[in-house]
């Protein structure tokens, strides 16, 4: 079997069983329990929560990210195995949202991590969240959800940006 064909089959398989990582980074996390439980029930799509990053496929950034959390998120993201996908919730990771002038939240997530799907709204409704999951599945099917490849390719740039946000480059707290 040729590589391309095999890729296609693996994409079909991975789209049908996406495990999302249980990491609540911001206020959007409160709309996840309804999505996971009986009323909206995302298990119909073959999605389930997973506690460890090593077995998860989808990382959900549920809302604003503080600098302190971004460090952990990057850590967690790098532990996940490829192929891996990032969904970002709400307006905070898009442009800062209502914390646009805060000293402790990073404003634009795509400068630090590759994002595959954005869900708008403050906070997004469960229907929006599920739509994002379906959208992600469609992208995987078409082979367009390639954020993780982008992360590998532009690794240096991502690392540089992350370090700038953590303040290493500000020259004041080396040895952190």
């Amino acid at each position: 079997m040729r590589y391309e064909e095999w890729n296609k089959i693996s994409r079909i398989a991975s789209r049908k069983s996406l495990w999302m990582l249980h990491f609540c980074t911001g206020c959007g996390a409160v709309e996840l329990p309804p999505v996971m439980t009986s009323r909206y029930d995302m298990e119909r799509f073959g999605m389930g929560p997973m506690a460890t990053p090593r077995q998860a496929d989808v990382l959900l950034i549920t809302g604003y990210l503080t600098v302190k959390t971004l460090k952990r998120v990057v850590n967690v993201y790098e532990q996940m195995q490829s192929p891996k996908y990032v969904i970002s919730f709400g307006s905070c990771p898009i442009n800062g949202g209502m914390y646009w002038d805060s000293y402790n939240t990073v404003k634009r997530l795509d400068r630090y991590l590759p994002v595959d799907v954005y869900v708008g709204g403050c906070m997004p409704r469960p229907e929006g969240v599920m739509n994002a999951f379906l959208e992600l599945m469609k992208l995987i099917d078409e082979g367009k959800a390639r954020g993780w490849e982008k992360y590998q390719k532009y690794y240096e740039q991502y690392k540089r940006n992350q370090k700038m946000a953590f303040g290493f480059e500000r020259g004041k707290n080396e040895g952190d």
């Binding site: 980074t25 805060s102 402790n104 939240t105």
Partner: peptide, 11 residues
């Protein structure tokens, strides 16, 4: 703690 600190009181 501090993973969710947005500086509300400052804002």
């Amino acid at each position: 703690v501090g993973y969710l600190h947005r500086g509300f009181e400052k804002l």
